[in-house]
Simulated assay, not measured.
Amino acid sequence: MLRHAERWVLRALEFSLVALLAGMVVMVFGNVVLRYLFNSGIDVSEELSRYFFVWLTFIGAVVVMRENGHLGVDSLVGALGDKGRRLCMVASDAIVFICCLMLLEGTWKQQAINASAVAPVTGISMAYVYGVLYFAGAGIALITLGRLFRALTGKLGPYELAEFAGDYSASPSHNLKGHLE
Rank of each mutant, 00 (worst) to 15 (best):
V26T: 06
L161Q: 01
W55R: 02
M27C: 14
A112K: 02
E6Y: 05
H4W: 13
N114P: 01
E160T: 01
Y36R: 04
F135S: 04
V44Q: 08
S173Q: 15
A61T: 09
S45N: 13
V118A: 09
R66Y: 11
V132A: 02
C100M: 10
S171C: 07
F52C: 14
G78H: 10
D82V: 10
M27W: 10
K83R: 14
K109C: 03
D74L: 01
A127E: 02
L152D: 05
Q110D: 09
I95A: 13
S173P: 01
R50M: 10
F135M: 09
G84E: 08
G154F: 06
G78M: 12
V44M: 10
R3K: 13
A162P: 01
H179M: 09
K155E: 11
V9D: 05
L10V: 11
G23D: 07
C88L: 12
V96D: 09
H4G: 04
S116C: 06
A12W: 04
L48D: 08
A170F: 08
L142R: 08
E163G: 10
V28T: 15
F135R: 03
A12N: 03
F15K: 03
G60T: 12
C100T: 05
G154D: 08
Y168H: 13
A115S: 09
T144E: 00
S171W: 06
H70R: 12
L56G: 12
I59A: 12
D82G: 05
V54P: 04
R150D: 04
R7A: 15
R35D: 05
V28N: 08
K177N: 15
E47F: 06
E105W: 15
R85F: 06
F164G: 00
R11N: 03
Y128H: 11
F97E: 06
A117R: 14
L20M: 15
F52L: 15
D43T: 11
K83C: 02
A119Y: 07
T57K: 04
V132K: 00
T122D: 02
G157K: 06
R7L: 12
V129T: 11
A94F: 10
K177Q: 14
D167F: 00
G78A: 08
V54W: 07
G137I: 03
L10H: 13
L142F: 15
G69H: 00
G30Q: 03
L180Y: 15
N175A: 14
A91F: 09
T107S: 02
V73L: 11
L87F: 14
A151W: 01
K109W: 06
T144L: 05
R86A: 10
A127D: 04
D167Y: 01
H174P: 05
V54C: 13
D93S: 08
G137H: 01
L176Y: 10
M102F: 04
V18E: 01
G60V: 09
V18C: 00
K155G: 15
F29I: 00
W108S: 00
D82P: 14
A12F: 10
A61G: 07
P158Q: 14
S92H: 04
N68Y: 10
A165F: 09
Y51I: 13
